[in-house]
Design a protein around this nucleic acid. Structure first.
Lengths: 349, 349
DNA sequence: GGGTCCACTGCACACGTGTGCAAGGGACTT
DNA sequence: AAGTCCCTTGCACACGTGTGCAGTGGACCC
C-alpha cells in the first residue's frame, strides 16, 4: 500500500515511528537497531546503549504485527467462552490471562453465547489472527466443537467441556470423587433421603456428578430412589422450580445435592417458598464455590473448584505444548469440600 | 527470516498456506486472489468464483497479521480491567466484546489487578500490538492513567473511572440523580435516620453518590448527621465491619444506603450479626444490581447500572472516533431503581 | 481494417521487523 | 610484516497481503 498522502494528511493519522526512524537518528542500519533492542550479543555495548536511549526518549514501540509476520510467532492465545458474565467463567479467565501475560502472551477474548455458528466464526477469526492456541470454556456447548477440532491445526484445550474420547487436550474438575465427597458429607451428617438436583443439558459433568452421587449412596447401602432425581438448567430459577417438585414428594428428601451453586441458590429459594427452612428442614450442598456462595444466607456448603488454577493449568499446558514439550493431555484437578452453614444433621432422620 | 529447514521439519510446524499457494492452484497471480476474496469489482466473476471455491476447499485463512501490516489497520481493541472476576466488570466486558465483534473488531483482554506498574506495561503491550483503541475499566485505580493518557496517541475511553477534568473520553453512570433516587425511596418509605455506607478509596463515584445522598436529605429537610457516614472498601467484609459501627450508635439509623452491592451484602450480614432484622429493623439499599442482588435473602433493593449497555456505548464511541466521527466525549447513562425486599417502612419512625 | 476503449490481469513495491551472510577493520600471533 | 581471527556492522531478502500502474487482449465503432 503506497498510501494516499492527501488522505493521511486530512485524517491526521499519527504514524507511529518505525525501526528505520530510530536507525536514522542513531546513524546506524535498522538491523543494528533490531539487534540492539533485542539484546543481541552481536552489537557493541556502547552502540546498544545509545540506541536504547534514543528508542526510550522517542517512546518507540516495536510493532508486534511486523514482528509476528517476520517470526511467524504471534505470542497470542484465543479464549472462547459462552459468556464472560458467568462468575465461574470469569474466574477461569482470570487465571488464563495471568498465566499468559506472565509468559509474554496476550489473549483475545470472544463470547459465543453458546451459539454454534458464532463459535465457528470466532474460531475462524482466531485462525486468521494466527493465535497460537485456543482455550475453550463453554459449559453450555458440546458437540459443535467436534468438527472445529478436526479442521483446525491450532492446538485447543477444553476446560470443563464436553469431550469426545481423548481427541483433545482438556482440563477438568474430577467430578466423581468430588461428588462422592459431597454426598458422603451429607450421609455423615445422618441423612438417608438425599436428592440429586441435576442439569438437563446432558453435560458429562452432570453425568459424572450424578454417578458419584449414586456410587456413594451404594457404598453406604442407601437405596437409590429415582423420584429423588430432578433437573434444573444451571440458573437459579431452574433450580427453584426443580426443587419444588422434590418438596411436594411424600417422604420428601432431607437433603439436596445440587449440580452447581447457581442451581443451589434457586434451591434455597424454592425450599423457603415451600415453607421449609435451610438447613434445619432441608440441607443443601452446591458445587463450584462461587464468590456468592459464602454470602447467601445460609452460607452455602459446596465443592470448591480451583477456578483460577484451572485457567493457569490449561494455559501452561498449551504453552508447553507450543514449546514442544509433550505433557499429560487430559488433566483432572481435585475439588475440595467447603463446609459452611447450609447443611446440618436432619431433624427427622 | 529464511528459516531453519531442519528445525522446521523436526517441530512439524504445519505452515498454514498463503495467498500464493491459492494463487498457484488457481493459476493466477496472488493479486487476483487478494482481489477476488475481497470482492473487488476488478476481477472477472467466473475467476472470482473459482478462486473462492479453491480457498474454501483448502480452508485457506487470510493472515490478519499480514493484512494489518499492509493496511496499518489491526481491527483490534484493548481492554484493561482491574480483575475479570468482578461481576460488574465482567458484564461490561460482555457488552464491549459483543459490540466490537459486531463491527469486525477483536478484543485483547488484560488484568491489571489495580497495580500501577502492571497497567503501564499492559498499555505498552497494547501499543506494540497496535490496538486501535483502549478501554479502561479499573474502578480501583485512578491517577496513574494521567501519564498514560498523555503519552499514548491511541484513543482511550474510561468507563466508570477516575477522571481528570475532561481530558479523556468517558462513559459513566450518572451518580447524583441515581443516588438521590435511592435516598428518596427510603425517605418515601418514612425513614428519617438514613446512613451512608461509602467507600474509603476516594473514587469520585463515591463522592458523587454521597453528594446525591446529601442533596436529597436537604431537599427533604432532614438534618445531615456526620456520625451516620461510615466507609467500607467495596467488599462484603468491609461493609460488614462498617455497618456494625452504625448499629452500635445510640439512635441508630433505620436505613442504610450503600455505595455498592458488595458493600450491601456485607451490611446484610453485619446487621444480622447485631441481632437485627432486614428490612424490619433496618432497611438496606445497594448500588449496581449485580446478579447476586436478586438472590440474596432478602432480595436487594438497589440501583441498576446498565452494565452491558455501558460497554457497548464505550465501544461504539471509540469505533466512531476511529471512523472520524466526533461525538460526545463524556457520556453519562442513567441508573434505575430496582425495588425488591430489603427496604420497607421503618418500625420505629 | 485500424483505432479506441474497457475489462481484466500481473508486476512491482510497500508495510515493519528479523536474520543469514559478507565485509570491514582492528588486534593479536607467528 | 603478513596472516589470522574476532568483533561489529550493513546488505539483502523473507514473512503475507494490498494496491497503483502498466500491459494485454478482445469488442466495438467508424
Amino acid at each position: 500500500m503506497t498510501g494516499h498522502p492527501l488522505l493521511v494528511t486530512l485524517n491526521e493519522v499519527r504514524q507511529s515511528l518505525s525501526i528505520k526512524d530510530v536507525a536514522r537518528i542513531a546513524n546506524v542500519s535498522h538491523s543494528t537497531v533490531s539487534r540492539a533492542l533485542r539484546d543481541s550479543p552481536l552489537v557493541n555495548p556502547e552502540t546498544a546503549a545509545r540506541i536504547k536511549k534514543i528508542a526510550l526518549e522517542s517512546s518507540y514501540r516495536a510493532s508486534a504485527v511486523a514482528r509476528s509476520l517476520a517470526t511467524s510467532k504471534t505470542h497470542t492465545l484465543g479464549v472462547v467462552v459462552a459468556t464472560v458474565a458467568d462468575p465461574f467463567i470469569a474466574e477461569v479467565i482470570s487465571g488464563i490471562e495471568a498465566a499468559a501475560r506472565q509468559r509474554g502472551y496476550s489473549v483475545f477474548l470472544a463470547n459465543s453465547d453458546g451459539v454454534a455458528d458464532r463459535e465457528t466464526s470466532v474460531v475462524e477469526s482466531f485462525e486468521e489472527r494466527r493465535v497460537e492456541g485456543i482455550l475453550v470454556l463453554a459449559s453450555r456447548v458440546g458437540s459443535s466443537y467436534r468438527t472445529l477440532l478436526e479442521k483446525t491445526s491450532i492446538p485447543i484445550v477444553l476446560i470443563n467441556n464436553y469431550k469426545f474420547g481423548d481427541c483433545a487436550y482438556s482440563v477438568d474438575i474430577d467430578n466423581v470423587p468430588a461428588s462422592r465427597e459431597a454426598t458422603r458429607h451429607l450421609i455423615g451428617l445422618g441423612h438417608r433421603r438425599i436428592a440429586y438436583l441435576g442439569d438437563r443439558f446432558g453435560f458429562n459433568s452432570d453425568t459424572e456428578r450424578f454417578s458419584g452421587y449414586r456410587q456413594e449412596l451404594a457404598a453406604a447401602d442407601i437405596a437409590f430412589r429415582p423420584e429423588f432425581v430432578v433437573h434444573g438448567d444451571g440458573t437459579p430459577p431452574g433450580g427453584e422450580a426443580a426443587v419444588q417438585q422434590l418438596m411436594q414428594l411424600p417422604g420428601r428428601p432431607t437433603a439436596v445435592f445440587c449440580y452447581d451453586d447457581m442451581t443451589a441458590l434457586g434451591a434455597l429459594r424454592g425450599i423457603r417458598a415451600a415453607g421449609l427452612r435451610v438447613p434445619e428442614d432441608v440441607s443443601v450442598v452446591g458445587f463450584d464455590d462461587l464468590l456468592i456462595a459464602s454470602y447467601v444466607e445460609p452460607a452455602l456448603t459446596t465443592i470448591r473448584q480451583p477456578k483460577e488454577h484451572m485457567g493457569t493449568l490449561a494455559t501452561e499446558m498449551i504453552l508447553n505444548l507450543l514449546s514442544g514439550e509433550k505433557g499429560e493431555a487430559n488433566v483432572k484437578v481435585a475439588g475440595e469440600l467447603i463446609v459452611r452453614k447450609s447443611a446440618c444433621p436432619p431433624a427427622v432422620p
